[in-house]
Structure formats: C-alpha cells, structure tokens
Design a binder for these strands. Structure first.
Lengths: 390, 390
DNA sequence: ATTATTACTCAACTCACTTGAATTATCAAC
DNA sequence: GTTGATAATTCAAGTGAGTTGAGTAATAAT
C-alpha cells in the first residue's frame, strides 16, 4: 500500500526545495539562528541562505527575532520559526472513531477532536475527515491555504498479512491505496503511516527525541508497535509494515509469548479485569497505579521482564541512541517500566560513553498517535529528504 | 566511531554529482539503457541526461552498446557500464589476517588475496593494506587513478560495548577512527563497515538483491550478523553497530540461547568437534554435509529452529522484501536451512502476494565480506544519497 | 581612536538544468 | 513506395539558484 517513490534527479528547483527545508530544519532545531550560522551549518553561501530566508519571511514561515553578538563582528540577525506560519493536520483512523489534530509550525497542538465512527468504509471516513478539518480550521480561524499537509495514521498492517485478523485492522480498506485516496480528497500533501511511526516523529518535532537522529520508539497503543528512525528518517519496511514488534515472541515464565500479550495496554486490561468484568480505560489504569494495585504491580513485573527482552532485540538490531516509551499508557506506568527494567548486558548499547539513557519515557497521551500524524508533515518540512555524502 | 555526516544544502555542483550517480545507477540496474529512458526514469530532461552521459563517456565509465527500437520513432542509442571504467578496493581486516579484493565497475572480482597478520596494530595493518592495493593494481595492470575508493570491513562492534571481549574485536583500534585513518593513508574515499553490511551490499551490486530496495541479509561469519538495507541504504545504527543479531536470545529446547550459539559456523564447528578434537574448516563442513553426517544434520535441525525465530524477529521488525542467507558457510548448508526452516506464521511477511521468497540464499564464500567491502564503494557510485519526495 | 572581526548586501558570474525548435530514424497506414 | 505519426536526439537560448568578490556596517579588542 505504501508507494515507494523512485528517486529523482536534482535540478535548480528541487535544490531550492531541499535547501528551504534544510534552512527551516536548522532553525527549528536550534530555536533561533542567524544567516551566516545557517550557511556554515549547511555548507552553503551566506548569500544563498539570505535569499532563501527572504523567501521564507515572505511566506510567513519565519520572523526576525532580534540580534545576537557572539564575540567581535556585526551581531547576527536571528530568525525563528513563526508558529502561525502553517499548520499540519493529523488524522488517526480507528475502527470505531476518527481523531483529528492541528499542530502549528512549532508542533504545538491547537486543536484536537474525536468523532465516533459507525461506518469505517472509505467514503464515510473521508466525510468525517473533511468535517474534522473544517471544524479545526474554523476553531482557530485559519485559512485552508495554511495547511501544509495531512498525516494519516491507520492501523497496520497494510495489506493482507499473516497478522490479518489479529487486531484492529480495517478490512474495508483492503483494496484502497490510502495515500492516493486521501490526497485526492484533501488536495494537500498526504503521508500515511502507522501509529508507532507517527508517534516516533512527534517526539522528534517537539518531544524527547529532538536532536536525535537514530532512535527507536516503543508505542503503547492497544497493542505494541515500534517506530524506527535511522538518520532522521523512518524505516518503513518494504510494504510499510516495519515495527510490528508486538508479535515477536519472548520467554515469560519459561513459556514463549508474544510481546503484545504481556506488554500492552490490552494485556494490562485483561490482567486487571480478572476480578471485576469491566473494561478499564486509560484513567482507571492510572488510578490503579497511583493506588499501587497489587494486580497491576504483578502485571508490571511481567511487563518489565518482557521489556528487557524487547530492549535486547532492539538494541542489538538497531544500535539506537535511545529507546523511547510512549503512547496511550499512563506516564507513571511507563516511568515505572523504565526504572524497574533490568537492562540486558549483552548488547551493543551497553557502553559506558552514552549521552542518552538506554530507555526513557516520551509523551504519554491517548492522542500521541493523532498528534504524531500531524508531526509526519512537520518533519517533512524540516528534514530534507536527502543526505550529501561527506 | 562512525562519523555521521551532517546534511548539506544543495547547489549546482552537488546536483551534478547526484545526477551522475543516479544515471549510473539506472544503467547499472537495467544493464543497458537509452538516454530518453533514463531521463524519464529520473524526471530529468533528456538534454540534461545527454550532457551527463557525454561526461561519463569521457570519463570512460560508460560505453555505447548499439541501438534499440521499441515501436515507432528513432531507435535509442543504448549505454552500458564499462567494467574497466573504475575499480573498487575492498579490504577485510581480521585479527589474524587481511583480505584484499578488487572489483570492476560491474562488480566482478578481478583480484583477491590474503595476507597473514601477526601484528594487528593500525600501523602494521595499513602497511599490509597498501601492499595489497599495490599488488592488486599491478596484477591487473590498472593505474591508481582508476580506484574509486576503498571499502574497509572490520570486526564490530565499534567502540567499547557490552559485547566487547565476546569475539573477534581488535582492541588495538579502540582509540582510532578507522575512517579517518584509512582515508588519510590511502588518499581515496573510504567507507568503513562491518562484515554483514558489506555482504548485504555485495548482493545488491551483483547478487540476488539486485533490484531490491528493502531487505535483510543474515551473514554467517564466525558468528552471525545482520545487514539491514532500507530503501537502498544501509541502516547503520547510531554508532555503526546495528545488526548484531547474533546476541539475540531465542528458545532452543526450552532454554534461551543466543542465536550465534546455535546458528553460526562456530557453533557448527563446536558441535562437530565433539568426536575428534580438530578444528573444522569451511571445506570440511561442506564435505560432512555432502556425506550427510548425522552430527551435522542434528546441528542443522537446531539451527533451523533458531532461523525460524530469527525470521520472525526480522520480518516483524523490518518487513523486508526478503531475507538473504550468505557468508562463509557452504551453500548446501544454507540451501538446506532455507528449505527446511518452517517459517513463522504470525509475521507481516506472511502474505500471499509476494514477488520474493521469504528466505533465500545469496553468495556463499569465505570472501563474501571482502568482496562486500569493495561493493560498498560501488553502491555509492550507483546510489545517489538522497530521495526527492514524490 | 584604531583595528580586527564578523554579518550582510549588491552585482556579476557560473553551473547545470529546462525549453522549444529543428533534425533524424524508424514503424505503420494507405 | 509514399506519407504520416512517433520517438530520440541535438542545438541554441533561457532560467533558476547557487557562488564569488568587493564593499559597507556594526561590534569587540587593542
């Protein structure tokens, strides 16, 4: 389902697109920055950067932010990203509801909304998506032109796989190319991804992964997903289904079980439901954690063992700067996992010289993936899709 | 140890470099190709491609290869990669020996040699490397200018990690940046990588991964490594140590054991040594396999179970087009593993619509990594280090 | 007050790609 | 066979975007 774009050659126009993004990315990463500094950073002439910045100012994507002297010489005029310069629309499609979000240029959420869904067929979904978009635009009084694009999060796996029927997939979409479908309907650039990848990108734009280029993100949705970022780019897999770590088996009490069956919100809910037959929501789990519920602590023990195994696999396969835990799981629970997981010793990540902890928590929110959907678009405007060697 | 190059902006000169590589890559991938066809492929004007091809002809990297008519219109002049246009130098450094190779532009090996090493310190190593280079150049009568670069394979992990002392590392190199060291000494572009990554690239240039963009490569060295290729690029990890899959634990006979301890040449050698206390080499294993040695078949049973687990992990984490098995293990053994491994069902790769098998064998050779080292350089000349969105 | 240093701008230049018209070679239809 | 459509190729002019070098302005150090 994921269209693999064949690489294109470069020309003047495409260079400008790349350089605009590189300039935006530099400023976004540093907060404020001067032209000469950016030019050095990107190995471009100051004149080139000056021209690009003039264009970006014109487009309202940047604004001047005073001057800063560093030692001798004329103090550099600083530029910062204009939060109101553009907005990214994020959509999360689940079988029973659609979530929408709007992020400003700095990744701040300015609108979120949930619409229940009774019909998950493409036609019904797109109507709801458009309704969400219009409501969002109206609620913050911005015009449609300011929309940079739409990020769409849909439950994976994409296409029929050995995991079909395992969870929350949308069978009605089997024969639809979501990317083309949404782009045709919304008429803005669209990126389609799964929840874990989107959440991973959200951390890169506003969260704890700022400044990191290679990291992994363990996403707690209903199940468990993994977003892999290598050199600033998502590793999508050949068919867009990379990161299905929930289905990897690990030994628990001498028995092989899928990670998802012991390390996910659903597994916690199942464990906690043993007593009273009601479905526990996010808040209930948070409350139980605060109350130091013994069943939950038991679950955490097991989950922590599972996380240790997951860490060993992820670290040895990717050698990331860090592994971030986030998603729809109470922060206390995630913190507890990070603190109480005994880290495997036999991995490449067990090194003395580290700037980042091996595990850390990211944002914990039921809307992580929805915001992440929009972050996919922001990431695109800040990350040139290329790297020049040396 | 791996230097992470910060992205640069683009300009006319860098565009030309990118486009030259894209043109070379198109032709290499297709075998022969005409200018207009390449232009369409890269979304460039035919004029631009014409200019680039003229330059590449001048440089001796291409030659004309007849014309081909396809329907109406003037038949297109076809171009092919000139094998003698340039050579890539590959070096594999092991604690006790250095291996050198030269590949022509089409990836054909024109020289290989082994030099024993009694002193693995950088100074001694570089002397041997230079000796290898000079011998190679002399043996095929090519001048130094035709060397495109050198690929260096060194035993990972790079830097001190939790795996230090586990295997074949080179402690003498702990405080040396191999990339800078070799580039200063050889005065040509250098790429440093581990054996698995290099082997994965070799398959992409000449082997069974031609035309694939996202795949995984299980490398049988002494231990077991994994090369991960995503969208034509290696996934190196934050510190160059991605792919250490050998240290991932899997259940064997109800017990967790590292993959390497059951699925590697060393593990086979240990198993087969039980009877007679001699070290078995590559050829001996091949002979035992032909003789259907019962101990070896026992080892294969266990190894096959381990490979099933490895497959489940790799497929769920990367969703590759295929997993290739290769390295210093007799081809019969690898084929046996591919045929007799029962593939896990619960993975995203277990889909009906597949162009590639889930497992297949690549090259089986003791020199796989040495040739792969040179392939790193060829890959660079064929793969522009960028992707323009859409 | 002078000088070194750095940021920035202007104008000229250059590189490499694009565009459009002209040319050539082939296939297909009459 | 002649004619017309089609496609590859080249030539020459045009364009976009980056670079270069000279000149100006503002600051810190001497």
């Amino acid at each position: 389902m994921m269209t693999i774009s064949s690489p294109k050659g470069s020309n003047a126009e495409r260079s400008r697109i790349i350089n605009r993004r590189a300039v935006m990315g530099s400023i976004h990463g540093a907060g404020i920055m001067g032209r000469a500094e950016i030019a050095r950073n990107l190995s471009l002439s100051t004149q080139a950067v000056s021209n690009i910045i003039a264009e970006l100012l014109e487009d309202g994507l940047l604004f001047e932010n005073g001057t800063r002297a560093s030692g001798r010489g004329l103090p550099a005029v600083q530029y910062a990203v204009n939060p109101d310069g553009g907005y990214a629309f994020g959509v999360e499609v689940r079988p029973s509801a659609i979530f929408g979000s709007l992020l400003d240029m700095r990744g701040k959420s300015v609108f979120t909304e949930r619409l229940p869904l009774t019909d998950a067929r493409p036609k019904a979904v797109i109507e709801h998506v458009i309704a969400l978009r219009d409501k969002g635009l109206k609620s913050v009084s911005i015009s449609e032109e300011k929309l940079l694009g739409a990020g769409i999060v849909m439950p994976g796996p994409f296409g029929r796989t050995g995991l079909a029927g395992q969870g929350s997939d949308l069978p009605e979409w089997d024969s639809v190319d979501p990317h083309k479908f949404f782009e045709d309907a919304l008429e803005i650039p669209v990126m389609v991804s799964n929840d874990a990848n989107a959440a991973a990108m959200a951390e890169r734009i506003t969260g704890v992964a700022q400044g990191l280029s290679s990291y992994a993100y363990l996403y707690f949705g209903t199940g468990l997903g993994l977003g892999i970022v290598s050199q600033g780019h998502l590793v999508p897999g050949a068919f867009g289904n990379a990161g299905e770590i929930g289905h990897v088996a690990v030994p628990i009490d001498g028995q092989m079980r899928s990670l998802e069956s012991v390390l996910s919100r659903l597994s916690a809910q199942r464990k906690l439901q043993n007593d009273d037959k009601q479905v526990l929501d996010f808040q209930s789990i948070a409350d139980l954690f605060t109350a130091k519920d013994s069943e939950l602590l038991e679950w955490l023990d097991t989950a922590s063992i599972a996380l240790g195994h997951a860490t060993q696999i992820i670290e040895n396969l990717f050698d990331p700067q860090t592994i971030i835990l986030g998603g729809a799981m109470p922060l206390g629970v995630l913190d507890y996992l990070v603190e109480n997981t005994s880290l495997p010793e036999l991995t490449v990540s067990n090194r003395s010289a580290r700037n980042e902890p091996r595990l850390k928590t990211g944002t914990s929110d039921r809307l992580t993936a929805t915001l992440g959907a929009a972050a996919l678009i922001l990431n695109q405007t800040y990350t040139p899709q290329f790297v020049v060697a040396h």
